[in-house]
Amino acid sequence: MEKRYRALVSQYKNQVYSLARYMLTDANDTEDISQEVYIKLWKHLENVSDTQALAWLLKVTRNACLDRIRARRNEESVNDELLGEHEKSNPEKLIGDAQIQQRLMSCIAVLPEPGRSLLILRDIHEHSYETLAQILDLSASQVKVYLYRARLALSEAFKSRISAEKIEDPL
């Protein structure tokens, strides 16, 4: 059983970590969630088949992240926190693609669900529509509709973000 657990850690560790990282953006929270998810896997390993393992892990990760985001909202505004986090973690001015990617991550993190999860799982992790439908308990057509809306929302959010930065810092 331990062998199987270790194999599942090696196989899907980055998928779990990356989903949590893009959803939460905070490195400490991401580590907490990853650990929480794998402890849960260890406790329920008998009930998770190898074929279901990836979908199960991503579903549990997503739910844990949503719980964490809700808990954060009770304390303070998510947007303020996320922007603050990026300022703290990146004190030096980023340039080029790295800068764009950092801003993009901030925008993804504030998208509404299920668009945010779909965008991460499809456009970054490149999972199939079937896997997405399984993880989010949606039909394939719902997945496509939500994904389309999420992409539009991301473009809009990004445009607004850049515009706001230009106004603040015209140089």
Binding site: N14, V16, S18, D97, I100, Q101, L104, D123, H125, L154
Partner: peptide, 10 residues
């Protein structure tokens, strides 16, 4: 730019 984002490494 979104597609350029990679799966983060644990």
């Amino acid at each position: 730019a979104l597609h350029k984002l990679d799966v983060q490494r644990m």
